[in-house]
Simulated scan of single mutants.
Amino acid sequence: MGRVITFAGLPYREAATGVKRAPITGGDMKEMSAEVIRVARGAALTEDVPEGSDRYLFTLTGGATVSGRGRSLALAEETFAVIEEGTTLTITNPNAGETTLISVLAPPANSPKRPGFSGGIVAAARATTPVHAVPAEKKQRIYFVGKGAAASERAHAMIVVYDKDTVTSLHMHPNAESMFVFLSGKTRFTVGGKDVIVERGQATYFPTGDRHGLRVAEGDGVSFLEFHVPAAFVTVKD
């Protein structure tokens, strides 16, 4: 069943000096493993990306530097990074305040293998990545994985922007898991057959075949980061 997650209430544990992390997804998700990572000023986290997995990072608040495979990239707030399997990755916070990142492994270690990203480390900022209008659906999309962005069969990732009267009716994905991380506005989301209001600082996730739908709850629109895993997903509407 789909779940609503509030980041402030998660059980954070210390992963390194000045670094805390907490899971977003649970054992009911088989294709992706997502977590929140909080990095204090000057702190760093180094770990390997498992073979067979893509690693995705999104700077929800603050900024970070990611390094690996001989590259070092600065990530401003709301920047998406894609890291190739087998990379020894270091995340550093060079800023004055704490940085909060969303981290996703797709798929988790020891899962069925699909061709993944093979470009080392790349990053794309929301502010400078092309916006694709979808007038028929009253929405805009900013692609990070798939659709001409970073190529991988392991996941599809994008920011979606809704107008005030955009509606996505109840539907499900019989061959993919989904996660939504809310960036702005208030969204009315159907989760487990009930309507809830979600906003920045929260996420929802849905196992394969779990029905969900969404619309703007109030104001002029909303935006959210959306994942589907694997990339070749099917949508079945009610």
Rank of each mutant, 00 (worst) to 15 (best):
M158Y: 10
V104H: 03
E137D: 08
S178Q: 14
A109K: 11
A136Q: 14
E85K: 14
T88R: 15
K139V: 10
A155Y: 02
T88C: 05
I83A: 11
T90I: 11
T92D: 12
A124T: 01
P108K: 09
I142Q: 14
I91S: 01
A157Y: 03
Q140L: 11
A123Y: 04
A106E: 04
M158H: 08
P108I: 10
P115A: 00
I142K: 10
T168M: 14
G97M: 08
H156R: 13
A127G: 02
K138C: 09
N95P: 00
L105D: 00
A136D: 13
L75F: 13
T168F: 14
I83D: 07
G86H: 08
E84V: 00
A136V: 06
E153T: 01
L105K: 01
I102H: 04
A124K: 15
R114Q: 12
V122Y: 02
D163H: 06
K139R: 15
V82Q: 05
G116M: 13
K139W: 03
Y143N: 15
D165L: 10
T128M: 09
A74T: 13
T129L: 12
K138F: 06
H171M: 14
F80A: 14
P108R: 07
E84P: 02
P174C: 07
T168D: 13
A106Y: 00
R154T: 03
A74H: 12
G116W: 08
Y143T: 01
T129Q: 15
P135Q: 00
S103V: 09
G120E: 10
T168Q: 11
V167C: 10
T166E: 06
N110G: 07
G119E: 12
A106I: 04
V161K: 13
A176M: 05
A125K: 05
K139E: 11
T88F: 01
F80V: 01
Q140H: 11
L105R: 02
A125E: 09
L89Q: 11
E84D: 10
S72Y: 01
A155F: 02
A124D: 07
S178L: 03
T129R: 15
